[in-house]
Simulated scan of single mutants.
Amino acid sequence: MHLYLHIPFCRQACHYCDFHFSTVLSQREAMVKAMVQELTIQKAYLVNKKLTSIYLGGGTPSLLSEKQVNLLFDKINLLFSIDVDAEITLEANPEDLTPEYIQTLKKTGINRLSVGIQTFNNESLRHLHRNHDSQQSTRAIKNAQDLGIENISVDIIYGLKDHTLTDTEYDIQQAISLEVEHISAYSLTIEPRTVFGKQKEKGLFKELPDNQMAAHFELSHQLLQSAGFEAYEVSNFAKNKRYSRHNSSYWNQEEYLGIGPSAHSFNVQSRQWNVANNKSYMLAIEQGNPHFEVENLSPENRINEYIMTRLRTMWGLDLAYLKQSLEQINQSLPRTEIEEWKEKQWAKEIDGFLILTESGKLIADKLSSDIFLI
């Protein structure tokens, strides 16, 4: 079982991000107290189940003070059973990872950091409206390693404005040189509600053409795999099998509870999500009645989710399991599409599993939608 805590605060809005957050940092204490209350209210969601991962995401969880982190973990330890080797991750911005703050995190049991570096190009960092520079990125990772946190992931975004393949190669090689065991490499995606999205509407921002973005994708995969990283998901790479246990739970349809505004929960049969508004969230919690919506998942929904998530991973689709699931609702395996994928070298079948090739990963979302149940 897995626990996610959404910390909805940032110092400033990154120009590409459409996650739920607020820059009103004075609300942090009240928000953490509300989340502590929600943990109590929702504890039955995880009844009799041991936590194997805890993930503090955001937003910027590294904006929490020592007191606020302790409030959350004191309640988690009181309410839930935590596996002795649980993966406990905190997302952090480089500028927050001072030696003193890392020591604070270690005391709570946090044993993994996910650091939002994005790029080592200072001009591009300013364009993204990030609050750190490349020197702080390197120092943050070294601080954590020196203090004994070995399980570190860094985020890199490729396809940035004016970036060439040489720029992408530099960013990936710099990330590799940090000697971390997990790297997430994402293409820049322009979302409508973001600053970049609004600039795009006005014709002031242009995304890279698909063929150029594909070249950045292929280069990042090539460089990372040559350096010994396993591409275990379309955008995620790990050395020494240091896969993100928490994120893998999403791709493997495992149960998880989400706490905080906009957080999602999943128990196989249904999905629920909290209101994406800090004020409404805290008011509802204060009244003892969390504000969330629930979607009961039909067998078709569950099969579609299995296809969408597993096809993005190196483990691929278990064709026997998929066939059995489809037969239960009088559907058959999409053999025509599967054979086409293999013929066009978008996928290969290994020991009964359908696994995307590098060229297939480029169009993973399209391939998934081609065999969705409508």
Results as ranks from 00 to 15, higher is better:
residue 152 I to Q: 01
residue 138 T to H: 09
residue 150 E to I: 08
residue 131 N to G: 14
residue 128 L to S: 03
residue 166 T to Q: 15
residue 158 Y to K: 12
residue 132 H to M: 05
residue 163 H to D: 13
residue 167 D to R: 12
residue 163 H to I: 04
residue 176 I to D: 02
residue 175 A to P: 10
residue 159 G to V: 09
residue 161 K to G: 06
residue 157 I to S: 02
residue 121 N to I: 07
residue 172 I to Q: 04
residue 160 L to Y: 11
residue 129 H to Y: 15
residue 132 H to K: 05
residue 136 Q to A: 03
residue 127 H to Q: 13
residue 176 I to M: 04
residue 138 T to G: 08
residue 148 G to H: 03
residue 126 R to K: 12
residue 142 K to W: 05
residue 135 Q to C: 06
residue 126 R to L: 14
residue 147 L to C: 03
residue 136 Q to G: 02
residue 152 I to V: 00
residue 165 L to A: 09
residue 176 I to V: 09
residue 169 E to H: 12
residue 133 D to P: 03
residue 160 L to P: 11
residue 130 R to E: 04
residue 140 A to W: 06
residue 177 S to Q: 10
residue 170 Y to R: 14
residue 135 Q to H: 09
residue 121 N to H: 13
residue 170 Y to C: 12
residue 144 A to T: 06
residue 146 D to K: 08
residue 149 I to Q: 06
residue 171 D to Q: 10
residue 179 E to M: 11
residue 162 D to T: 13
residue 145 Q to F: 01
residue 132 H to P: 03
residue 141 I to P: 04
residue 142 K to H: 09
residue 161 K to D: 13
residue 148 G to N: 05
residue 129 H to Q: 12
residue 148 G to Q: 04
residue 160 L to I: 11
residue 127 H to F: 15
residue 151 N to Y: 05
residue 142 K to P: 01
residue 163 H to V: 05
residue 142 K to D: 06
residue 179 E to N: 14
residue 131 N to K: 15
residue 140 A to H: 09
residue 154 V to M: 02
residue 127 H to W: 15
residue 136 Q to W: 01
residue 131 N to H: 13
residue 170 Y to H: 12
residue 135 Q to Y: 05
residue 126 R to Y: 10
residue 164 T to A: 14
residue 134 S to G: 04
residue 125 L to M: 01
residue 124 S to A: 10
residue 162 D to P: 08
residue 168 T to R: 09
residue 172 I to C: 09
residue 164 T to C: 15
residue 131 N to F: 10
residue 132 H to N: 08
residue 158 Y to W: 13
residue 147 L to R: 04
residue 150 E to Y: 10
residue 174 Q to W: 08
residue 154 V to W: 00
residue 131 N to S: 15
residue 137 S to C: 06
residue 174 Q to S: 15
residue 166 T to S: 15
residue 158 Y to L: 11
residue 134 S to Q: 02
residue 122 N to T: 07
residue 145 Q to W: 02
residue 168 T to F: 07
residue 144 A to M: 06
residue 177 S to C: 07
residue 122 N to P: 08
residue 149 I to F: 03
residue 165 L to P: 11
residue 173 Q to S: 14
residue 154 V to P: 01
residue 140 A to V: 08
residue 125 L to K: 01
residue 133 D to A: 03
residue 174 Q to L: 08
residue 155 D to G: 00
residue 157 I to C: 06
residue 129 H to V: 09
residue 168 T to K: 10
residue 156 I to Q: 01
residue 162 D to C: 10
residue 123 E to M: 11
residue 158 Y to A: 12
residue 166 T to C: 15
residue 135 Q to R: 09
residue 157 I to A: 04
residue 141 I to W: 02
residue 155 D to P: 00
residue 156 I to Y: 00
residue 141 I to K: 06
residue 141 I to C: 05
residue 121 N to A: 13
residue 174 Q to K: 12
residue 151 N to E: 05
residue 131 N to A: 15
residue 167 D to E: 13
residue 146 D to P: 06
residue 141 I to F: 04
residue 125 L to W: 01
residue 125 L to F: 03
residue 156 I to R: 00
residue 144 A to Y: 04
residue 124 S to E: 05
residue 142 K to V: 07
residue 134 S to N: 02
residue 160 L to E: 10
residue 179 E to T: 11
residue 124 S to R: 10
residue 145 Q to S: 01
residue 165 L to D: 12
residue 177 S to Y: 03
residue 129 H to S: 11
